[in-house]
């Protein structure tokens, strides 16, 4: 198979996965029932499509070795020189474009993250007090809120939230935040944010970011539910999510209600067939682009 066919196959595959995956993965049967599975499949699908595009670009570039002035014995390889040169240029431009965009966005996100994190730590050092029993930092505030700071081990609760919540509800909130930190959820959210920010024209990446944000909440809910209980957690969402006096900032877009309804229902089962399905699907998603790129010779480049 020649380079052009490979490139067509790979880009066709990427486009298909990027189009089909969101439809399959947004089905209500999947994500609320097994958020971990949905999260893994989202990232495997997008990663697979990205890998296919990357391989297509590398194919275009690597075809340059057939050029007569690179390797004289391949004179009559049958690939026209002009097309090969055009392919080389396109491949290089695409790779450079993706690398630049991702680096720029990555640096911007990292700078913003450091700024917020450092200012938070600075303010908390003076305003907050560590509560050894809760293993969290308590700060005085007029808002009832709880959060964790990505990239640290810090969980923060306002004194107002402590007053408002019952002990079990508070324990559930803390378990939820601890699950975020233990699961390093900010890395997944950060990765999805990087992709969506680097390629704003690709709408499926916006979806990936939103789903990632949503699914890590469900994952943390499940963990808190196992450690405390679902209705305490649901009660805490109702109390801490109450419309804040500051107005419409950070509206949940219905996510809080969905979380509460899910927590009041039966607990999700952690089944091993689901894990086997996950392993199989992930392997296929990662393997297919490689298979397509090396078909039929078995040689990748």
């Amino acid at each position: 198979m020649n380079v052009a066919t490979h490139v067509l196959l790979l880009t066709g595959y990427a486009a298909t996965v990027a189009t089909v995956a969101p439809h399959v993965l947004s089905r209500p049967a999947l994500s609320p029932r097994s958020p971990g599975l949905a999260l893994a499949l989202w990232h495997a699908s997008i990663g697979s499509a990205g890998l296919a595009l990357g391989l297509a670009a590398v194919k275009l570039v690597s075809a340059a070795r057939y050029l007569p002035f690179v390797r004289s014995e391949h004179h009559d390889h049958g690939i026209p020189v002009v097309e090969t040169l055009a392919g080389l240029a396109i491949g290089l431009v695409l790779i450079a474009f993706a690398a630049t965009r991702m680096t720029k966005t990555g640096l911007r996100i990292l700078r913003g993250h450091r700024k917020t994190r450092d200012r938070q730590m600075e303010l908390l050092a003076v305003l907050g007090r560590h509560d050894p029993e809760l293993d969290a930092t308590v700060v005085p505030a007029t808002v009832a809120a709880a959060y964790c700071i990505a990239g640290t081990r810090r969980i923060v609760v306002t004194d107002h939230a402590i007053k408002l919540l019952q002990p079990r509800q508070l324990a559930a909130v803390l378990a939820h935040e601890r699950a975020h930190l233990a699961g390093r959820h900010h890395l997944l959210v950060g990765w999805a944010t990087l992709l969506a920010g680097a390629f704003p024209a690709v709408k499926v990446l916006d979806q990936l970011r939103e789903e990632t944000r949503n699914l890590v909440e469900l994952l943390a809910d499940d963990r808190a539910r196992r450690l405390v209980d679902g209705s305490s957690l649901a009660g805490a969402i109702a109390l801490l999510g109450r419309a804040s006096p500051s107005g419409t900032l950070g509206a949940t877009g219905g996510q809080a209600l969905a979380r509460v309804e899910r927590l009041l229902g039966p607990p999700p089962e952690r089944s091993s067939p689901a894990l086997i399905a996950l392993g199989a699907a992930t392997s296929i998603l990662i393997g297919l682009p490689l298979l397509l790129a090396s078909f039929p010779s078995g040689v990748l480049f």
Partner: peptide
């Protein structure tokens, strides 16, 4: 609303 998700809040404000 921020691009950078440094602070993972337990629940956002509801309408």
């Amino acid at each position: 609303g921020d691009e950078v998700a440094t602070l993972l809040r337990f629940v956002d404000s509801m309408t």
